[in-house]
Computed example of a mutant assay.
Amino acid sequence: MSTTRTLYRPVGPKELALIEASGWRAFPPRLPEQPIFYPVLNEGYAIQIARDWNVPESGSGFVLRFEVDAAYLARFPVQIVGGREHEELWVPAAELAAFNAHIVGQIEVTQTFGAAVSQD
């Protein structure tokens, strides 16, 4: 029996559209200037990024929630990048396909900030 861990990801509208195109099952490949994929461990931190960074950068921000196989995640140490609530995992971009393969179920939007974007 496999257990999962809930993770969160703040994204802007372009990344959200690519995730939706995957059937809400995978994150898109990183851009060359983005060597790390960083899901975060709590929704409050994801909200801060989506609201305070994604909205000014692209007009809207979204918080995504998803489950990942906990045994697989054990290979990525928790990184603290500010205060204690700023916990994230650093997944090398080259390992994102393997990470996506360990997502259990669908990725879902839990929060929306800024301009409304259709999620049909």
Rank of each mutant, 00 (worst) to 15 (best):
M1A: 11
M1C: 08
T4D: 10
T6I: 15
Y8W: 14
R9F: 02
G12Y: 03
L18P: 06
E20A: 15
A21I: 00
S22D: 13
S22L: 05
W24G: 13
R25N: 08
F27M: 11
P28T: 14
P28N: 06
P28V: 13
L31E: 14
L31A: 15
P32A: 12
Q34W: 03
Q34N: 10
I36N: 02
F37N: 08
Y38G: 13
E43Q: 13
E43V: 05
Y45S: 09
Y45T: 00
Q48S: 12
Q48P: 01
W53P: 01
V55K: 00
V55Y: 08
E57M: 14
S58Q: 12
S58A: 15
S60V: 06
F62A: 01
V63Y: 08
L64A: 09
F66M: 01
F66Q: 00
E67H: 12
A70K: 07
L73N: 03
A74C: 04
F76E: 06
P77Y: 06
V78C: 04
V78W: 05
I80E: 09
V81M: 08
V81R: 15
G82D: 03
G82A: 10
V91P: 12
A93S: 08
A94R: 07
A94W: 08
A97K: 12
A98M: 07
F99T: 07
V104L: 05
V104P: 07
V104W: 05
E108Y: 04
E108F: 01
V109A: 02
V109R: 01
Q111E: 15
G114K: 11
A116G: 05
V117P: 03
V117H: 10
Q119P: 03
Q119N: 02
D120V: 08
D120I: 04
